[in-house]
Design a protein around this nucleic acid. Sequence first.
DNA 1: AAAGGCGACAACCGCAGGCCG
DNA 2: ACGGCCTGCGGTTGTCGCCTT
Length: 309
Amino acid sequence: MERQGDGTCIKKGPWTAEEDEVLLNYVNEHGPRDWSSIRSKGLLPRTGKSCRLRWVNKLRPNLKTGCKFSAEEERVVIELQAHFGNKWAKIATYLSGRTDNDVKNFWSTRRKRLERILQTSPPNSQQNKGKDPVFHELPILEVPACGFTAMQEGSPSGKNQCLPLYPESSEEYKMMGLPGLVRSNSQTLEADLPALETISMQMVRPFESVSDCPFSQPQLDLSLIPECEELAIEPCDLNFLDMFKQAEHLEAETGPKSVTSIPPMGLKDNAFNAKQGGAEAPPSPDSFFDDFSPEMFDYLEPLPSSSGL
DNA sequence: AAAGGCGACAACCGCAGGCCG
DNA sequence: ACGGCCTGCGGTTGTCGCCTT
């Protein structure tokens, strides 16, 4: 309990069943609003904020409480995070029964795990001396941002298209990741929102089989955003290729079971090798995604739930 | 069996935006 | 136009239970 200036006490910490009941009764009677009046009326010694949070995250109807993220949900979160950034509330609206807190927790747990996995990897090659560790860029590496665009087969243009992304800040750019720099022609994000709705629909009705999963059918028609082309090459040098070299090195040392035995994220061998040689032109945009497949997620994190698809 | 690591989840905090007087 | 209040959001931290060593 914490005493306020007005003499009243504010309770913090875990909610009791009795408090939940009071809160539910209040919402049933008044609707999910006027949270502050719950305290002012003396119904609960909780702030309006705390009440709202409790209702949104636990008491609201149709929540998937105690239910782990399915493989499809994971993929959707990954895709949407690549496009929206850390807009958890927005992402949550595309996942039936999930709250922003759920998505946020899911993502941070995932990120922590990835960081830890890579931290246990041997030190980077000389190329990384004096640079931030590669794992700082992890969210980039795990997000093949164009994967879900393959489901836009019914788009008006009749083509599968990548959502356009124009990073306005370096932070946005970092969050987005290289694949997000690739897009087709002049489409707006708003124009692609129906496609996102499709994702939501898919989440409500889980894919019947692997072959139904739109993520497994990448047919991309992509081109680089001209103004970002230069930027796109940079992270490739700094991160992707470092990762690939690391992976290659580690695989030689520890065998293919190593967690860092990383497939080259859709880079075709020729593109990868050309880049390694350093003399050739950067890989073509298409070559980044020709090999995209759902398995590309799996090196980062096994998806136990996906095995049962 | 005990200890530590880790993942999942719950809840708080600070900030920003909208609304209203 | 301005300030206060309310709501919503994102970041962070704490807790608990399970698993591994």
